[in-house]
Design a binder for these strands. Structure first.
Lengths: 210, 210, 210, 210
DNA sequence: GATGAATGAGTATTCATTCAT
DNA sequence: GATGAATGAATACTCATTCAT
């Protein structure tokens, strides 16, 4: 919740008061994240980013070693924060059911707060799984999975959740349903993230049938 | 079921039954679909496709007007067949619950049968929503949505499904959970599509809570 | 006058009765000449010509060895006929003034009859002077010049024409003014070639001043 | 006379007076103009130009958006300057005959000064009339024609020129005879542009007949 | 920090031409 | 005579990146 994810930092970055040098980086990263997310990483040119930032493309290389380095930084930030947050939630000493709900609420908050990073993570799977430089993303994903699976299995053991469901499939089911909302969720749309979360929890808890 | 989706056609391409010329096209489209899906459309070069097909890149233009035209044909094929199939299912005169289950089974079958087309549809959203040439994909998506929503609403009216859930959100929830499986589902893996479908239906029907 | 220039032959070619095999060649050459002239030689593709002829581009090579061979044949035809005609006129035993008028009338007739060949000769000078294969065009041009210069010089010697003008410059002046009309002359336009010829002769004979 | 046509500017390009950046542009445009004029626009490759400039072909795109943009700039420069000059001459308050002579001298000077631009204008008519992007050239040509026609008609009205000649045809006659000289005129040849102009004026004024 | 000019490797596409059928 | 598939070389253009100023 108290996150320093790039999109948030970027908003602060425009004040041009706090953080001097690093705010410029964050600003540029925020621009890059948005463009990477909306146009796709490889459809976004370094010049696109520079144009949006009001500088020349060559000047970007004073801040980042390469285009790929920008994406790496965005994703590393994102995955790192995500992992910290969900670990905090899982270790908060609640019941498995409360923990699961907490993870789910957190996911929707994350989508609300840093939609571009989430979209990147969702849409660039081809790039992320192909390029060895992005193996760390996959690794972090496995760590995330471990936390969720822990909660699910504990919940089955304690009788919170149905025991006839495969935990791995259950995790993927929930994960995919939730993270996919980034594609249509609009922070300023009719449905607020809290509302969507509540509805999704309803479905997950009780199912569709009357 | 009686589908002529590109991947299927390609496999049967050597039969020379549907006309000499078109089998070559289907062959090339199948190659393109796989590469587009696994590396991403813009990461796949025309030369990649041609290499895989054993011809020179320029020769591809004897069969297709452009790289984009290949993607268009793949997606048009896919969306067209999908729409036909789900309409057949929805109009088969079953109960809404049976219809919904049918739609879901069909989705998993589709993922099993033409994984590359599905992956393309899932992963290239940036391209598909940005480029005006691909507006037809969005249009077809809306048609698909209409069919699903029809089933869901009828089910709520007839008391099959819970009435306190928003049908639009419910559709997205199901759709995203299912189609996302294309990212990890392996046709030759441990879990067969039928198994996954059954588990997902379990969760959807009754929810997670014990 | 009784010329066998390609454009004329082409018109006969559509009858598909006379000349069997050679009429097909002429037909194709006529198509090529028109396209070369209107779009430019290098802007015209072999496929353009084939499309217009209703065959595939590869099939053109049954008739001609290459695209360049088509242009060569068109120009060789044209230059050959032109040379024959103007020699006939120059040797017809008239006064130099009558001969000059005859040459001029003939030029306008040629433009009227085979506009595309003339346009080619006018517009493709860059290609014609650069490519060694087209040296024959330049050679024929010199032969044409010789005939005109002969008439002009004889006219000066016999007192028909002013002696204070440089014959070489005079020739170029007349030649360029006349042949350039191919760019705006329309066989079916308001001004018929005979009319234009008469007006140009008026100017050439008496000048502009009142 | 006080012209800033591209060829001229290019020669002075190293002065670094009109601003560093623009002199490089002018240099490159001068190279392009010469090559376009001598080999033809479509026979000239971007690499040809870059080679001549001593840079890589891709680097040209740092200065110009496209090959076509280079031609556009060359022609726009040329037509703009030409129009300014002939309007100055026509409005200088001389007799129509003096004005006409002035226009003609100016034409020869232009050919002498910027032969490549003139040649382009003369030789690329197929391209210029086909491609819609070059419609501005045709428009400027009509403006030029208006100025010349004004002088000719006024001259007929005031009795300077013969009244029995069609002004439109007279204009084309003069225009074509003069501009065509760009094909054979050599700035360093035996005949200087002034000499050619004088001879052409002689013919135009008094005609050929003795 | 930023500019502007350039690199160099690639990228889709074009097109004259060939040739087995 | 014609087809249709393919070649191979070229073509305009793109773009991440470098670097002297």
């Amino acid at each position: 919740m108290a996150s320093s994810n790039n999109e948030a930092t970027a908003r602060a970055g425009r004040r041009r008061s706090t953080g001097a040098g690093s705010s410029r980086r964050a600003q540029l990263l925020a621009i890059a994240a948005e463009m990477f997310a909306t146009r796709g990483y490889s459809q976004t040119t370094v010049r696109d980013i520079a144009d949006e930032a009001g500088i020349l493309s060559g000047s970007l290389y004073h801040h980042f070693a390469s285009k790929e380095a920008m994406l790496t930084e965005i994703l590393r930030d994102f995955m790192g924060n995500l992992l910290t947050e969900i670990r905090d939630i899982a270790e908060a000493g609640q019941t498995p059911r409360e923990a699961l709900d907490g993870l789910i609420y957190n996911s929707f908050e994350t989508i609300h707060r840093v939609p571009f990073a989430v979209a990147l993570y969702q849409n660039e799977s081809a790039l992320l799984t192909t390029t060895p430089e992005f193996a760390f993303v996959h690794k972090a994903s496995l760590d995330v999975e471990k936390v969720w699976l822990g909660v699910l299995k504990q919940g089955q053991a304690e009788g919170d959740f149905r025991a006839d469901l495969d935990p791995g499939l259950t995790y993927r089911f929930i994960r995919d349903a939730i993270w996919s909302t980034v594609r249509w969720y609009s922070p300023r749309g009719r449905l607020q993230h809290r509302t969507v979360a509540d509805q999704y929890l309803e479905m997950l808890h009780g199912g569709l049938l009357a």
